[in-house]
C-alpha cells in the first residue's frame, strides 16, 4: 500500500476508529463500575453508559447519521416499541 492509500483509508475509517475508541472507553467505565461497585446506585450510571454505547453503534458504526429520514425512523421504531413493551409491563409489576 502506498502512502496515499493509507491516507485515503484513514480518511474513510476515521469515524469508525473514533467510535471504536469511544466504545472501549465506555466499556472500561462499565467494567470498572461492575468490578468495584463503588456506590449503590452505580446501576444508574451503568445504564446511561450502555445507552451511550448503543447510540454510538447506531449512529456512527451503522451510519444512521448518514441515512435518509426513513431509515432513521426505522432505526428508532424498534426502540420505541421496546419502550412501550417495558412501560406497559412495568405498570403491572411495579404496582403489584
Amino acid at each position: 500500500m502506498s502512502h496515499d492509500d493509507w491516507q485515503v483509508l484513514w480518511q474513510h475509517m476515521r469515524p469508525a476508529v473514533r467510535s471504536f475508541v469511544l466504545l472501549l472507553v465506555l466499556l472500561g467505565v462499565n467494567v470498572t463500575l461492575g468490578a468495584t461497585l463503588p456506590f449503590s446506585w452505580a446501576y444508574v450510571v451503568e445504564g446511561v453508559v450502555v445507552a451511550c454505547m448503543v447510540l454510538t453503534v447506531l449512529l456512527v458504526s451503522m451510519e444512521v447519521l448518514r441515512e435518509p429520514p426513513l431509515m432513521r425512523l426505522f432505526a428508532a421504531l424498534g426502540f420505541f416499541w421496546v419502550a412501550i413493551m417495558f412501560t406497559m409491563t412495568l405498570v403491572d409489576y411495579l404496582s403489584r
Binding site: 466504545l23 462499565n30 467494567v31 463500575l33 461492575g34 446501576y43 451503568e46 445504564g47 450502555v50 454505547m53 448503543v54 453503534v57 447506531l58 458504526s61 451503522m62
Partner: peptide, 17 residues
C-alpha cells in the same frame, strides 16, 4: 453491527448490573 449492539446490551443486563 447489530449483533454487536445486542451483546453490548446483554453484557450489562446479565453480568454487570
Amino acid at each position: 453491527h447489530f449483533i454487536d449492539l445486542i451483546w453490548i446490551i446483554v453484557f450489562p443486563v446479565l453480568y454487570v448490573l
